Computed example of a mutant assay.
Amino acid sequence: MAAELTDPAVEAFVAAVNKGDREAFFAALTDDATMSDDGTDRDLRAWAEREIFSSNGRMDVEDVSADGRTLTATYTNSTWGSMRTRWVFTVSGGRVSRFETGQA
């Protein structure tokens, strides 16, 4: 059973990833959102295209922190297969302003 997402901004982010919906994904982010992957800052748009949209990325959330902004998920895409990942979100004004992901 998937863990219940409690932060609306994080929920919108995960739903957009799982639907492969670029428009909804970028709507869930602030205009100046940033991200890192395994501790290295990345170009968010290039990363999302490569790791989510062109490779059919999907998040199966296993655990959610009490504040709803840290997740453990099995992340699967056609490039890397499945891996256990950790996601930490910063939310500003109801949208994700930064996310950090990496292997859990």
Rank of each mutant, 00 (worst) to 15 (best):
A73W: 01
E4Q: 15
W47M: 04
V14W: 06
S65V: 03
L71I: 07
P8K: 14
V61Y: 07
V91R: 11
S54Q: 13
R98K: 14
I52T: 04
P8C: 13
M1H: 13
N56R: 12
V88T: 15
Y75A: 05
V17S: 01
F26N: 03
N77V: 05
N77R: 07
T30H: 08
E4V: 15
M83A: 15
R84F: 01
G93I: 03
T90V: 14
R98A: 12
F25Q: 01
L5Q: 09
T90M: 13
S82W: 01
T34M: 02
R95H: 10
A2C: 00
S54G: 06
E11G: 03
A12D: 09
G81N: 11
E11L: 11
S82D: 08
R58Q: 11
S97H: 08
E100N: 12
A27E: 13
A12N: 09
A16I: 06
T34S: 12
L5E: 06
M35N: 08
S65D: 07
V14K: 03
G94Q: 06
P8V: 09
A28T: 04
G20T: 08
T90F: 10
R22T: 10
E51C: 07
D41I: 00
W47T: 02
D43V: 04
S36H: 02
T85C: 15
R22N: 02
R84I: 03
D60A: 14
V61H: 09
W87K: 08
V96R: 08
L29K: 04
T30K: 10
T6P: 06
I52R: 03
S65M: 05
I52E: 02
A28H: 02
D41Y: 03
T30R: 06
F26V: 04
D31M: 02
N18L: 08
T79S: 14
R95V: 02
W47F: 13
V64M: 05
V64S: 07
E11K: 15
W47E: 01
W87D: 11
R58P: 01
Y75I: 04
S55Q: 09
R50A: 13
A2G: 00
E51M: 14
L29N: 05
S92M: 02
A66S: 14
R45E: 14
F99E: 03
D67Q: 10
V64H: 05
T85D: 12
L44I: 12
V96N: 07
E49D: 15
A28P: 03
D37I: 01
T6A: 08
A33K: 04
D38A: 08
S54M: 07
R42G: 00
Q103G: 10
D31T: 05
A9N: 09
A24M: 07
A24W: 03
D63A: 15
G102I: 07
N56I: 00
E23W: 05
R95E: 08
A48E: 01
V61L: 07
L29P: 01
T70G: 04
D37A: 10
E11W: 06
R98P: 00
D41E: 15
V88F: 04
E23R: 12
S55F: 01
T70Q: 14
P8A: 11
A16K: 04
A48G: 02
D41F: 11
G39W: 02
A28F: 05
R22M: 03
S55P: 00
F13H: 12
A104C: 09
S78P: 00
R95Y: 00
V91Y: 05
D7H: 15
R98Q: 11
R58V: 03
E51S: 12
